[in-house]
Design a protein around this nucleic acid. Structure first.
Lengths: 218, 218
DNA sequence: CTAGTATTCAATAGATTAATTGAATACTAG
DNA sequence: CTAGTATTCAATTAATCTATTGAATACTAG
C-alpha cells in the first residue's frame, strides 16, 4: 500500500516544517502581518541567509506565500487554516507537555490571577463603549491591522503614556498571541498604576482568524 | 528574550513528533483504538524495536500515553485535541500541498464524484432508520467503538457479503479517516452492485472527537 | 550602464534522526 | 524457579538538518 505511505510522508513534510523553533517564531511574526526577509531576520535575530532558508522551507510546504514588491520579497501566511494549526499546536503542547506549563507559569505570572477575556465578550463591551482596548505590539504590526477601536501603545512606551489612560474605565490589552509577554507585562504595569486591566484571550491572529472585525489604519 | 525561544522550542518538539510518516501512521491507528507495541508493529509493518522507539518519542511529547496490562504495554492517544491536531494537519496539507491533491485524486477516484455525507446529517438519518451504515475497518477497531447501529464489514469480506445488504436502502460507509481507502473502495464496490452508496465525511476518530454518540460492542 | 541593495544559492561542519541488529530487562505462566 | 514473551535499551550506519560563510543573482535608482 504505497498510497498510504506516500500520503503520510506528505503530511509529515508539514510536520517537519513545524519542527523548528525558529520557523515557528517566523510564522508567528507572519501571522501578525506580511514582512520582508531582512525585516524578519531583524525581528527574529537570525542571519538573513538563514531566515531565507527557513522561509523557503515554509514556502515549499505551502504554509507561507511570497511575492516581490519593489526591491523586496514579502512573505505572508498562506491562510487562516495555518493560523489555526499553529494555535492548536500551542494548545496541545500546553496541555500535554509539562515543560510548557512550567515555562508559562514561571514567566507569565499574571496568568494564574485572572482568566483572559473571551473574544466575543470583548467585542460586545467595545460596542457598548465600556472598555479601552490597548494593542501592545510594535506599531508596524498595529498598522497592518488591529481590533476595532484599539489604541496602539508599544511595550516600551507604556510607562510614559500611563497618564493618558482613563483610569476610571476598564482596560483590556492584547498582543501577538496567548503566550506573548507584552500583554502580560502591560496588565501588570496597568494594575500597578491602579487601573483595572485584563488580557484578551489569544492575540490578534486568533481574533482575525475567528472572523471577527478588524480595523485598518488607512 | 530566552522565554520566547524556549517556548517555541517546546512547541517545535511537538512538531518534530509529527515530522515522520511512520509516526503519523501509528497515530492514526491509535486514534481508532488503543493497541500494544507488537500489534502496532504488525499493522504498520515496522520492526518492534523501531515501533517502540517511535512510540517513546510520541510519549515524550505527550501525544500518547501508555500503561502495562498483563504482559503487554498498551498505547493510546492522549486526547481529542490530538485527534483534532492531526485532522487539521491533514487539512492544511491537502489545501496547500499540491502533491497531496495529486495523490488523493489519483488514488481516491470516488472523491470527485460525490461530496461525503456530513456527520450531523448522517446522525439524523440514522435516527430515522433511513440509511444502512457500514464500518469498513478491521473488526478489532470496530469492536473498540463504532457509529450507532453501524454493521462491520472488513474490506476483504465485502465482496461475499454484498448480497446480505438491503439494496433498496441507501448505504453510507466509513473507516479510519478522510483519506482511508477502505471506504472509497467500498463505495465503489457497492455502486457496482447497484446499491446507492456514499461516504461519511472523515472517519471514526473525527466522529468521536466531534462529541457524537459512539456505540461499544459489549 | 553602474553602483548598491535584497535575496538566494552553494559549500561546509556539527548535530540530530531513522532504521537495523542484538542484547538486556521485566514480567507471567506453569 | 524457570522458560518464554513483550518491550526497551544500546550501538551502529546512512541520511538529513541547522547555522555559518561567502559568492551569485536579480533588480532598482540614479
Amino acid at each position: 500500500m504505497s498510497f498510504k505511505h506516500d500520503l503520510f510522508s506528505q503530511f509529515a513534510r508539514v510536520g517537519k516544517a513545524l519542527s523548528n523553533g525558529n520557523r515557528l517564531e517566523i510564522l508567528e511574526y507572519l501571522a501578525q502581518t506580511e514582512r520582508s526577509v531582512d525585516d524578519l531576520a531583524k525581528v527574529s535575530g537570525l542571519s538573513v541567509a538563514n531566515t531565507s532558508q527557513h522561509l523557503q522551507q515554509l514556502r515549499q510546504v505551502g504554509l507561507v506565500t511570497s511575492s516581490k514588491i519593489g526591491l523586496k520579497v514579502y512573505y505572508r501566511i498562506a491562510g487562516d487554516d495555518v493560523v489555526n494549526l499553529l494555535k492548536l499546536l500551542r494548545e496541545v503542547s500546553e496541555r500535554h507537555l509539562a515543560d510548557v506549563n512550567q515555562l508559562v507559569n514561571t514567566y507569565l505570572t499574571v496568568k494564574d490571577e485572572l482568566e483572559p477575556v473571551a473574544r466575543e465578550v470583548l467585542l460586545e463591551r467595545v460596542k457598548q463603549g465600556l472598555v479601552t482596548v490597548i494593542d501592545v505590539r510594535p506599531s508596524e504590526e498595529y498598522l497592518a491591522g488591529h481590533l476595532p477601536g484599539a489604541i496602539n501603545i508599544p511595550p516600551d512606551e507604556l510607562e510614559q503614556r500611563l497618564k493618558d489612560i482613563d483610569s476610571q474605565q476598564e482596560v483590556v490589552a492584547y498582543c501577538r498571541g496567548p503566550h506573548c509577554v507584552y500583554s502580560f507585562n502591560a496588565v501588570q504595569q496597568l494594575r500597578n498604576a491602579g487601573i483595572q486591566a485584563s488580557r484578551l484571550e489569544g492575540g490578534f491572529p486568533e481574533w482575525k482568524s475567528a472572523g471577527l472585525p478588524v480595523e485598518l489604519t488607512v
